[in-house]
Amino acid sequence: MSRSPQTRLSRRFAALRAEGRAGLVTFLTAGDPDAKTAWEILKGLPEAGADVIEIGMPFSDPMADGPAIQASSLRALKAGQTLKKTIGMVARFRGIDHDTPIVLMGYFNPIYSYGVAKFLKDARIAGVDGLIVVDTPIEEEDELCGPARAAGLDFIQLVAPTTGEERLPKVLARASGFVYYVSITGITGTRSAAVADVAQAVELIRRHTHLPIAVGFGIKTPKQAAEIARVADAAVVGSALVNVIARGLNRTGKAKKGLGERVLRLVKGLARGMRAAKGGRGAKRKAA
């Protein structure tokens, strides 16, 4: 299935295929630990090696997230982050970077509260490329998935180990941008999946879609990212980055000096690890 007109996400994944490597998707929560530090990190991400930037829209009750991202959400909210500010941060980023795709990730209630139509319009104008919303499964597609795609935003569907072969085509039929494979049955930042299991699942998904497949949940180290890079089109790293923020706070919860650099250093390490992964899926596809 060819996509036209080209979106930032499709251009980026096409470029990755041409380079024969898998992409690095970084997750950070907007406004964590404060707006200034979060901005410093965000603007440094493309240079550090992030191919796609996933920005968490903080929510008070992140049911699918583990302790690391729960804490990051609460830090951001405490520092005064709102959905409006998150959209504003993307607009500011677009002032300095026109190519790196940005995907907003979060839960439905803040969007519903903002107003779905207004949110989609504002996000699109700001330069958001796609949405990942955890608690709107295909059963609730009319709430956000349909309107988002109609508004020109990609709606990235999550596929889980529980999804099952019968359900999979229905989920993928409603996906755009890329597919996010949740590699474990669990919450973010906890267990890590066995690479063989991930490879098998990715192959199954590929039989039903031409969209790129990103794998997330439990990828913490450059080595794990490199392993995933061999079997998927992209690896998502979130909790590991968020943990660097958690460790870089002083006793009053303020960012210590150099925190942004430490986060970006881990991103560089992850990107290096992934680029060194030879025989990646992307490479194979290019060869084929």
Partner: peptide, 20 residues
């Protein structure tokens, strides 16, 4: 059949849980 009482109710859960 989607679990709605007017606009209320529904099934707003993560994909991992949806099959369950």
């Amino acid at each position: 059949e989607g679990g709605h009482f007017g606009i209320y109710g529904g099934r707003f859960v993560a994909e991992t849980l949806m099959p369950l």
